[in-house]
């Protein structure tokens, strides 16, 4: 059973990574679903914070490889969000849909905040617009998409025993 869950989780993770590089460019909208954040958050709740941090770091580096000017910002943001999610998992939410959506949306918001501050490319005006307009909207879209993924693949958000 444990092995099945592992392979299922790995398959969903890979699928979400693929979706991130196919659906997002296809839609091309400013408000986008961050499938990488969903993948990392859904995995992070099932692993130890250290493993979650490593996973977030690796996933962030993958994202950063396409934006060399901010290389490391994605890794830092994803590490922080992933580790935080792993620590919060047992206290904040269970199988409640709304809480799951809020959790994923908050993860996306946190990721964007750390990423945008760390990369230091945007001016103050653009940064504020991104943080208070586009990021929250993207976070909502990501939260909804995350819940959809959880429901579709019947992923348990209960922490491991």
């Amino acid at each position: 059973m444990r092995t099945y869950s592992f392979f299922k989780g790995a398959a969903v993770f890979l699928l979400l990574v693929v979706l991130h590089y196919t659906v997002r460019p296809l839609v091309g909208a400013r408000i986008s679903i961050d499938f990488l954040v969903i993948a990392v958050l859904l995995t992070a709740v099932h692993v130890r914070p250290g493993v979650a941090a490593l996973l977030g770091f690796a996933t962030g580096l993958i994202a950063d490889s396409l934006t060399p000017l901010s290389f490391g910002a994605g890794a830092l943001a994803m590490t922080a969000v992933s580790a935080l999610a792993s620590w919060l998992k047992s206290t904040v939410f269970g199988d409640n849909l709304l809480l799951q959506a809020i959790f994923i949306a908050a993860g996306k918001l946190a990721f964007d905040f750390v990423y945008l501050v760390a990369e230091r490319r945007l001016g103050v005006g653009d940064l504020l617009a991104q943080l208070f307009l586009w990021s929250p909207l993207s976070a909502i879209a990501t939260g909804l998409a995350g819940v959809l993924v959880v429901r579709t693949f019947r992923i348990s958000m209960e922490p491991r025993r």
Partner: peptide, 15 residues
């Protein structure tokens, strides 16, 4: 904690 710290340091180094 050590792993997290290492990842954060590696990220900052990348930056």
């Amino acid at each position: 904690t050590v792993t997290l710290a290492a990842c954060v340091v590696a990220s900052l180094l990348c930056l």
